[in-house]
Design a protein around this nucleic acid. Structure first.
Length: 314
RNA sequence: CUAAGAACAUCCAG
């Protein structure tokens, strides 16, 4: 069972849902971990109904199983179901509590997020940061700052959330102040700062942040490319994407969208054909491209092809 | 060994 579980976990982590399902079906016996891994894989793919069926069939539901399902409903926006399940579950942990804070926070529902937060028997920086994010999404900068101040200890994630908090309100210089003040930075905090500058229209400042980073990952490269694309530098953006060490589905989709934004529908469409990975967003980007160039026939054909690739249109 | 917090692409919302 241990090795079966290891295989199952590996497949699930790589997003190979169908293969994980096959392995699961062939397993001679299960532990709750096996069920949870498959449950989570379905949830990750947005297949909440299938997750629910699995959950109901699962003979040994533990706190993990419940949390996965609660989070799945929350991600779909079904907060009342999430809350109902939360109430029904036999045990709560700091993780399940935090998941509820996060669930309401994602919706900008500061009120409910705070209520769950207050009722928590104990809190860690995950919980505090989730509450900060709730305030950010609810457009309450003051509340975000207040929450940050009330936190007993700050880590790089909560600091980064505060960069985000100020940037979201258009206060880039304050965001930069936070950025300068934080005791340590990582690739995410730098990328947040980079994006903040980009969104404020300061490409050059964004580039300076990029150049100052000790390490870059795909997200950083993608973000810098987007900064160029949105500031009129299509070809520099293209350079960034192609000269980086690595590209992912976001990079490809971004490039398809950039071409379209500049009216290069042909380039957009031909890149789509060559791209090694596609997801729902990639398809949406291309459909939008076709629609913008008034190729309705093409848009509709694409829509059907999409179903053929086993991607559910939304 | 499986569940919760920060960054990038499309649409939507603002």
């Amino acid at each position: 069972v241990v090795s079966w579980n290891a295989i199952l976990t590996a497949l699930a982590q790589n997003g190979r849902l169908d293969e994980a399902q096959c392995v699961f079906d062939k397993m001679p016996e299960y532990t709750s971990l096996s069920w949870n891994v498959l449950l989570n894989a379905n949830a990750d793919h947005g297949l909440v109904h299938r997750a629910r069926v699995l959950f109901d069939r699962c003979p040994q539901k533990d706190i993990y199983s419940w949390t996965i399902l609660v989070t799945a409903y929350a991600m779909r926006g079904d907060l009342s179901m999430a809350a109902k399940l939360f109430k029904a579950m036999p045990q709560h942990s700091i993780v399940t509590w935090t998941a509820m804070v996060q669930a309401f926070g994602d919706n900008g529902d500061i009120q409910n997020a705070s209520e769950y937060f207050i009722k928590m028997p104990e809190r860690n920086s995950f919980a505090w940061t989730a509450l900060i994010m709730a305030h950010i999404r609810g457009q309450d900068l003051k509340g975000a700052v207040r929450t940050f101040r009330n936190m007993p200890s700050h880590d790089v994630v909560s600091w980064t959330a505060m960069i985000q908090a100020h940037a979201e309100c258009g206060l880039v210089e304050w965001a930069k102040t936070v950025y300068d003040m934080m005791p340590e930075r990582n690739v995410v905090s730098c990328t947040v700062m980079l994006v903040a500058y980009s969104q404020a229209g300061h490409v050059d400042a964004a580039r300076q942040v990029f150049d100052s980073m000790p390490r870059h990952n795909v997200v950083a490269w993608n973000a810098m490319a987007a900064a160029y694309a949105t500031s009129g530098h299509l070809w520099t953006a293209r350079m960034m994407l192609f000269s980086g060490p690595e590209r992912n589905v976001v990079s490809w989709t971004a490039m398809i969208a950039f071409y379209a934004q500049y009216g290069h529908w042909d380039l957009s469409a031909s890149l789509f054909q060559q791209v090694p990975v596609r997801n729902l967003v990639t398809w949406n980007a291309l459909i939008a491209t076709a629609a913008q160039s008034s190729q309705w026939r093409v848009a509709i054909d694409l829509f059907h092809e999409m179903a053929a690739e086993a991607i559910e249109p939304d």
